[in-house]
């Protein structure tokens, strides 16, 4: 934590962790478009009731998210101080992509989305399970079936769908730089495998958010 390189490595490691988390989140969500969400229900019930997931993985994830956000903001503040007098004429677009220069903007947009996302899903989940003490996941008396219903219920409101879709665009922009940048930060780069990392990063940054947009639109359109 003491030096700039240590900070960027930690930023990258927390980024890697969130990339892996996002992939598993996507895979589970994607099962909701098949059938009547039976697989989605059983996976959600497992994730929601497994002590390992709830009391080990979830706190690690929350720490990872908060760490990534807090460190990102700290670095941004420090970097702004490193140029105390700004250029009168500057053309940053000539030498670096918009995504790489605006990670703080896309990051803050993702943070705002997380607020809504927690309000939509996480807070009601915690209330039902740990305040009301209902671990059954039951809907109409059938255990472990409420999750699909709750997911669908959220995607009835067109404005919520629009906000979700826009947030996924910001997520994509963030990942377009973040994925390959994380590899660079941990020193995993040379001319042999750089093109592969870049292609993989672009593929991930486009496909995963596009997949989330598809899921949101799917549930909205099938309920019209």
């Amino acid at each position: 934590m003491k030096t700039s390189i240590a900070r960027k490595v930690l930023m990258a490691l927390s980024g890697f962790f969130l990339i892996v988390f996002l992939l598993q989140h996507f895979i589970i969500n994607f099962t909701s478009v098949f059938g009547h969400g039976e697989t989605f229900n059983s996976l959600s019930h497992f994730m929601g009731t497994s002590p390992m997931v709830q009391f080990v993985a979830q706190p690690i994830l929350i720490f990872g998210v908060i760490f990534h956000l807090a460190m990102g903001m700290y670095l941004e503040a420090q970097n702004n101080k490193a140029r105390n007098v700004k250029y009168v004429m500057n053309k940053p677009g000539e030498n670096a992509s918009w995504m790489s220069r605006n990670m703080i903007i896309t990051g803050v947009m993702i943070l705002l989305f997380l607020g809504l996302h927690f309000y939509d899903f996480w807070i009601p989940e915690i209330k039902t399970k740990f305040i009301d003490g209902d671990m059954s996941g039951a809907l109409n008396g059938v255990e472990g079936t409420r999750y699909f219903h709750e997911l669908q219920h959220k995607f009835v409101d067109v404005w919520r769908v629009i906000i979700y879709c826009l947030s996924f665009v910001f997520l994509s922009l963030h990942l377009l730089h973040g994925f390959q940048s994380a590899f660079q930060s941990v020193g995993f780069r040379n001319h042999k495998y750089l093109p592969t990392i870049k292609k993989l990063g672009n593929l991930y940054a486009v496909l995963i958010p596009a997949g989330f947009i598809f899921i949101a639109l799917f549930h909205y359109l099938t309920q019209l």
């Binding site: 670095l75 101080k81 490193a82």
Partner: peptide, 18 residues
């Protein structure tokens, strides 16, 4: 060298490639 670089007040690298 990294320690001295930080002491001089330069910012952190965010891999923009500029």
């Amino acid at each position: 060298m990294v320690k001295q670089m930080d002491l001089e007040g330069f910012g952190n690298c965010t891999n923009t490639g500029a």
